[in-house]
Design a binder for these strands. Structure first.
Lengths: 237, 237, 237, 237
DNA sequence: GATGAATGAGTGTTCATTCAT
DNA sequence: TATGAATGAACACTCATTCAT
């Protein structure tokens, strides 16, 4: 029998992670590479965590700065505004997402196996980069209306285009799988979103633990992929 | 062949609903029952829509008031604070959720059929009450730290307990189904969250259309429930 | 013999007026009409004085608020931003300026007398509305580059157009005067600006005194107009 | 007939000079003498231009640095603070002003001719050193209250004394001219300020042109001096 | 001599909340 | 009941200044 310690029983329960901001006493993030060259990365990491925890609107730049053990000035030295910081977080999340499924997508395997590779990589990625993914997801579903900076819409459009491109990689595999008889779902768009939703789901309940191993994560990912495949009506599980 | 117009191709794309706030010119919500008795309900509806669109922290009480074609005074007449308003929205969403699956849960059907009834009702409910459900979901995953009102934690705890109770209704059915051989999933908690996630998923991509019928929604729900059942490894689809 | 007490001997000396902001202890402006209807006017008056004293960039909205014995909120209740407040001050100054010379300009007198009427009214106006005129003048010669609000340039263009229209009223009289032989200046544009400069000059050295009478101001104005007329080479002084 | 291209028709219009800061793309000042010995002078020149364009409070040290094609470090290498930089600009402007009228004042000519010499030199000086003069003028009429550096008031007092001394040189000539019958003005202080205002006026509307010659400037100056003399009621023009 | 990084005090702006009417 | 005015705390953002290199 397998146990899954890292699963917290929540669709609901507030996620309590080691990242949690406790307004006053806080252990700043620590980085192996503290060189200035790495500074913008540190800012992004801190921002991603804050945005995950409180959302974009609910996060203060002071919160982010406190996460770094620094002051707002450091943030503004690298990013011109809060929204630009958000864009950078979003961009990095997207880049990571593409990179994760690239290899699987480029493989010459039949649709079912190709899907498994991509889905597994994506599911693992969601856990490995939870803060960035939460921030990304949040920003996708929220209008940030106060953001009137010139070019904001253009940036969002480009970003939505990227998103679409990402989905299309899965869409293509699903179509091929249906054509080859490997999958038996009904409506493509619904199946697509359902599958991605399953693979994404851990960002809302996964919580890393001190004693956790890579194997634990792999097992969770594997189980999610199993369910996704079954949901698609995969003929050979 | 069936077509599903209301599905928008997004995990990603910003949801464009008829509710969208357009900062300046805005068609206030209209209610059949404009009696004072109904007033608090109007406030809740407007709040739910705003919270859905911009999140709790991103919404202004002026936004909410504007949605009603009124000013903040009306809100404060019925709710003592912004967070109390959020609590009320949350509570209503929870009440609706319980009511929706009640009948299915109380039926004496075998687990698979019982699940189908509950799941279908829940999936339809997500579409019917999208603003409330989005607001609920959002508040579940976001710390609202600035909310220092006394008793806030107690309220949240009670609310989290409710949430757990809701999940437990599905959990029970899943356990019974596994015991009876109707379902063949691996880890209960993961299967539970995955299934709920599937049923919830439409809140992020569903967008009602002018010419949409109830039948359209029922078909979407049905397809989602199909996938959920398959994901559970249902033996008799 | 006439004495001119209100004249302070400065091109240079910092103007010390009863308006001076003394950061901490300050007598707020008092208004005969304290009705809310008059509130925006009070804000404008306070702003004009602050802008006169410290310039636009050097004035804090807290300064302005302190002048009113209020807080920034009051300002933002009536004006959306600091720059919009400045625009309002500017507009009011311009309106006053036009109103002041209107009657003289519309009269059917010969150029020299018409000029005298207009110039006298303008010179008196400069003293009566010193804060507004200083704020106006300052804003004319300073780029407020940080002001990126949409439409800023359009507003400034309109305003510059108004300014031009104001000058043109004097320009017309000067041209007519030259044609009729009443004036004997050389270059129109230089004469025009010189004359307006003379009439404006008091905004930088005039300082009202407690015991001052209208007659005092009229004498100053009269003397300035005399010099302006002579500068124009008026044939009949 | 003479034309005066460099005159722009403004009491009002925003001055558009070759100096204008265009936030991003900017041609830094160029100096014939780029030796370190000349460095402080470059800083002063850049500062004068910025202060002219945006005022002291509205100018950033980054603006000044950008004008030099350098960073703030260079400024701080030569000046201890922003206000010290302003003082230096002011001082240089004053020194130039004294130097300009010195010869005329020391001459042994009768009052009218002596005035003409001084006035002409001053008027030319205003055009030649427009940025310094604008910065000076601005600082004379603006309280820079945030400037709490110790000794600030002492410095300003000394500076105001200098200003007074400068005015007194003209005052003396005017008095002598009135006594001798060469001038026929009414009140000394008003005449004095009016005349200086006339001579200064070009700093707000003069704008150098590429094809401009020294002769052009001399004509403008001459015309201004003519008007000043007539304003004084000079008996022999 | 000069730079880039970082800071902290301040400044414009927002917004939940109160209150007189 | 509902509104408009007003407040104050908090927040995004700026900028003079310092400092290690």
């Amino acid at each position: 029998m397998t146990t899954y310690p890292p699963v917290c029983f929540c669709w609901v329960s507030l996620v309590k992670t080691k990242f949690r901001t406790d307004a006053n006493k806080l252990v700043p993030l620590t980085f192996a590479d503290k060189s200035p060259r790495n500074a913008p990365q540190q800012v992004l990491d801190a921002a991603a965590i804050c945005f995950m925890e409180k959302g974009y609107a609910g996060s203060t730049l002071d919160d982010v700065a406190r996460h770094m053990g620094a002051t707002k000035g450091r943030i503004y030295h690298y990013f011109n505004s809060k929204s630009e910081l958000m864009h950078a977080v979003r961009k990095r999340a997207m880049d990571i997402n593409f990179a994760a499924i690239r290899d699987g997508f480029d493989s010459n395997l039949p649709p079912a196996q190709k899907f498994r590779l991509m889905a597994d990589a994506h599911a693992l990625n969601m856990m490995a980069e939870q803060p960035y993914q939460r921030a990304l997801f949040d920003s996708l579903h929220t209008h940030m209306t106060r953001d009137k900076a010139a070019g904001h819409d253009a940036i969002m459009d480009e970003f939505i285009g990227d998103r679409r491109a990402f989905e299309d990689m899965f869409r293509e595999v699903l179509e091929q799988g249906k054509a080859s008889g490997a999958f038996r779902f009904k409506t493509l768009s619904i199946a697509l979103h359902t599958v991605i939703t399953i693979l994404n789901s851990s960002i809302y309940w996964y919580s890393p633990r001190p004693d956790e191993t890579d194997k634990d994560r792999r097992q969770i990912a594997s189980e999610l992929v199993d369910m996704a495949q079954r949901a698609l009506g995969a003929t050979t599980p």
